[in-house]
Design a protein around this nucleic acid. Structure first.
Length: 227
DNA sequence: GTGTGATCATCT
DNA sequence: AGATGATCACAC
């Protein structure tokens, strides 16, 4: 594909989205930033979301801070995944906020993590160099395999059960083999409402669902296997 | 070196 | 305010 491509517009379907992403493979984030007219951050440690937002813009995702997939019409969620030169994920992957009150569904099938993870465009970003020098890796569309979904469901149900039992404050990131619950807030003084063990209300730190590195590592490996 | 818990910027 | 995008930093 020629460089630079036309300025990104929302993709019409999965195939168009995938073609668009494949056209970015091998490009540096610096090239993408220049193409899109965005300056690389002067202080990268203070710009944790820069890479993800750059990829959203590069693929024509409408800017939004609403729950639900990035490409709502397609039902596709975009996730950038920082990996080292061996292709090993460098960090866990944020999935979505976890409402700790009774809005958190008891069933996996109606849960927010399932809605987000049912269809994901994974975009590896390769390397540990300064941000502008890292390269877009080989992206791929993913849907959980049956055994992967079983794992996610089991973790979700375990967490949901604890939340509904009023144990939200006692859930640590150690719970869950693939999906875990971690703090998700501007600081640890933030509070949200949760149900307590007696069915009343108490406060707790806001949390979000995350995918463990071991899980994303495994799914990167499995895409090269026959099913 | 890893994983958990804490934190930062931006947008609506 | 509270969501989005994640990485930082310290304890282990």
């Amino acid at each position: 594909m020629s460089w630079p491509p036309p300025f990104p517009t929302p993709p019409a379907d999965e195939a168009a989205l995938l073609r668009c992403a494949e056209g970015l493979t091998g490009r540096t984030l610096g090239e993408l930033a220049q193409w899109l007219g965005r300056a690389p951050p002067a202080r990268p440690e203070r710009a944790k979301g820069w890479m993800g937002q750059l990829m959203e813009a590069a693929l024509g995702a409408p800017p939004s801070n609403e729950a639900g997939p990035d490409f709502a019409a397609l039902g596709v969620e975009l996730k950038t995944l920082p990996v080292d030169l061996q292709g090993v994920p460098r960090a866990s992957t944020f999935v979505c906020q976890a409402p700790l009150d009774l809005r958190l569904s008891a069933s996996w099938s109606e849960s927010r993590p399932k809605a987000k993870l049912s269809r994901v465009l994974w975009v590896p970003v390769v390397g540990e160099a300064p941000l502008p020098e890292r390269r877009v890796g080989a992206c791929f569309l993913w849907r959980p395999a049956p055994d992967e979904e079983d794992l996610l469901r089991a973790d979700y149900e375990e967490i949901a059960e604890l939340v509904h039992a009023g144990q939200a404050n006692r859930i640590s990131a150690r719970v869950g083999r693939a999906l875990q619950l971690r703090p998700k807030a501007a600081d640890n003084q933030r509070e949200t409402w949760v149900v307590d063990a007696a069915g009343g209300w108490m406060t707790a730190q806001p949390r979000g669902f995350y995918l463990r590195r071991s899980f994303t590592h495994a799914l990167l490996g499995r895409r090269f296997l026959l099913t």
